[in-house]
């Protein structure tokens, strides 16, 4: 799906057209699930709950989304908030409504060209590539490049504790954040 096709889908989905909702779901469920899968405290059923809650909420609130380009960033934001709440043992419903309105409005409409999603994906891949051969690289590769396994499943496969896998994924994600932040700031300086 091109960016334009996604934008058209979002308009249709905002009018309640379910075929458009379906296309958006199929296009983005992977990214949403990946956010939830990173929380090793969540079991498979809870991960699916995060995916369901995220899309249900997003489709309900869609008419309020001002910038179609921000749709997938908005989705992963909702997903992270749900996953955090669930993994802390809070009830999903405990997420306040104003929290969600912040989610809609907080998402910046545009990102600098140096931070377009393709460029950021390239950054992620390069950072994985640069890691020295070893368990950290293997974990990041399995989780983010193969994109099928949960943190729990990777722990089983590598014979590690759940927390060890989570820690490695968090460390790698922090490295991605550091690199993206550097680029974001560099774009500000220019």
């Amino acid at each position: 799906m091109t960016e334009e096709e996604v934008a058209v889908c979002i308009q249709r989905a905002a009018r309640g057209e379910q075929d458009a909702c379906r296309q958006l779901y199929q296009r983005f469920h992977g990214s949403v699930r990946r956010v939830a899968f990173g929380f090793s405290g969540l079991g498979p059923a809870e991960v699916e709950d995060v995916v369901q809650e995220t899309f249900a909420r997003a489709f309900r609130e869609l008419p309020r989304l001002q910038h179609p380009r921000a749709f997938s960033r908005w989705l992963v934001t909702i997903a992270r908030n749900h996953a955090l709440a669930l993994s802390r043992g809070e009830r999903v419903r405990a997420l306040a409504a104003e929290h969600l309105s912040r989610e809609v409005e907080d998402i910046a409409p545009a990102v600098p060209p140096s931070l377009g999603v393709e460029r950021r994906v390239a950054v992620v891949r390069a950072l994985i590539e640069e890691l020295p051969e070893g368990p950290e690289k293997e974990t990041a590769r399995l989780f983010y490049l193969e994109g099928e396994l949960s943190a729990r499943e990777i722990a089983e496969r590598l014979g590690l504790g759940k927390s060890a896998v989570t820690m490695r994924l968090e460390r790698f994600r922090a490295r991605v954040k550091r690199e993206l932040l550097a680029r974001l700031l560099a774009a500000e300086v220019e």
Binding site: G30, V51, R80, I107, Y144, R173, K177
Partner: peptide, 25 residues
């Protein structure tokens, strides 16, 4: 700055298109 979302979006896209999820839908 929306850094979390920038990171999660990129990390989620790194694996390429996900397989169709008929059950979830």
């Amino acid at each position: 700055l929306g850094l979390e979302a920038l990171a999660d979006e990129a990390l989620g896209e790194a694996a390429g298109p996900a397989r169709e999820d008929a059950v979830g839908w």
